[in-house]
């Protein structure tokens, strides 16, 4: 499948993503369509674990392009994100070539030796000594690529400002070499967990997509697609259960990835249906805090009864 087909319309995007195992809701597909056709970076926000990173991965898979990923963290700077001179290699070469350098300059006056060196000027600042980091690598891809800038909210303000430059022109300048332009514009995804507000300038340059926690129907479909071999009845029960937990007042509500983990655990244990005992034993798959587990445990009998007696349970026995 070439990308000309996938991004022809919003429906083809929905299809294309479904075929690589990622279910999009309509607004996600619409936004992807826009990002692709307007050539704008897409800033993706939403609770942890709703599949923000996965979206970029699947976009690359669907387009048949390479995914280049830049993980952001505090203190990330240009040398880690854009390029770095291979300092060690440069140094090593000058040490190894010491004798050669001696030959060049041997027996000459200071002026003459500097003149001689000038002829070899930039020899240590060529692409051989350039270590491309994700951003530069993304610009260098002949066929284009999908560039994922993950958790951009963790980076510093300075880095954000620097990103602006790259994202608006898709070019960077390296003083020793010159300006490098993107051979083909990459499709850019930025993700944020909202640990802080991003600058307005960055937001202005991006389209914005918020992925919420899924509704029961979508979540059931996701589980069915991600966990092959799971029965529909079990899927119904466990999605209903997770959705109920999300209504409780707890520290970290389980997101899709936790639902999938839980489904896998239940499959491994060869369970066909939920029961209070099995839920109690496997709760740690969806809840990450001891306090949260306690909250749920307290209500466990009541919650499982509701689900097992409710429509979700009955319709499929």
């Amino acid at each position: 499948m070439t990308h000309h087909h996938i991004y022809d319309s919003i429906e083809t995007i929905e299809h294309g993503f479904r075929s690589v195992g990622y279910l999009t809701s309509r607004h996600i597909a619409t936004t992807l369509y826009l990002a692709y056709h307007l050539g704008k970076p897409l800033l993706v926000e939403g609770p942890a674990g709703v599949g923000k990173t996965e979206l970029a991965k699947k976009a690359a898979e669907g387009l048949g392009l390479m995914l280049i990923r830049l993980q952001c963290y505090e203190g990330l700077d240009e040398s880690k994100a854009l390029y770095e001179w291979k300092y060690g290699k440069q140094l090593l070469y000058t040490q190894i070539l010491k004798d050669k350098l001696n030959d060049l300059t041997g027996g000459k006056s200071l002026e003459e030796s500097i003149e001689a060196l000038h002829r070899y000027d930039d020899i240590f600042f060529t692409e051989h000594f350039l270590e491309p980091r994700p951003l530069l690598a993304a610009l260098q891809q002949e066929k284009g690529c999908v560039l994922l800038i993950d958790e951009v909210d963790k980076s510093d303000d300075e880095f954000e400002a620097f990103l602006l430059e790259v994202l608006s022109d898709f070019q960077v300048s390296i003083p020793e070499i010159g300006t490098i332009r993107a051979r083909t514009r990459p499709l850019v995804f930025l993700t944020s967990n909202n640990t802080r507000d991003l600058s307005d300038a960055l937001k202005r340059r991006c389209l914005h997509l918020y992925i919420p926690l899924p509704d029961p129907k979508l979540e059931r479909e996701i589980v069915m697609i991600q966990v092959p071999g799971i029965s529909e009845a079990l899927t119904r029960q466990l999605v209903a259960f997770v959705q109920k937990i999300r209504e409780l007042d707890i520290k970290k509500v389980p997101s899709i990835s936790e639902t999938i983990d839980w489904a896998r655990v239940l499959i491994l244990l060869n369970r066909k249906s939920l029961s209070p005992e099995i839920v109690r034993d496997t709760l740690h798959a969806i809840l990450k805090f001891e306090a949260d587990i306690d909250v749920v445990r307290e209500r466990l009998p009541e919650m499982t009864r509701q689900i097992l007696n409710g429509r979700e349970g009955l319709s499929h026995g």
Binding site: H27, T30, L34, L42, H208, Y210
Partner: peptide, 12 residues
């Protein structure tokens, strides 16, 4: 609605 939301509203 979805398209304008992506272009105009940049936070939750």
């Amino acid at each position: 609605r979805d398209a304008l939301a992506a272009a105009l509203a940049k936070s939750l």
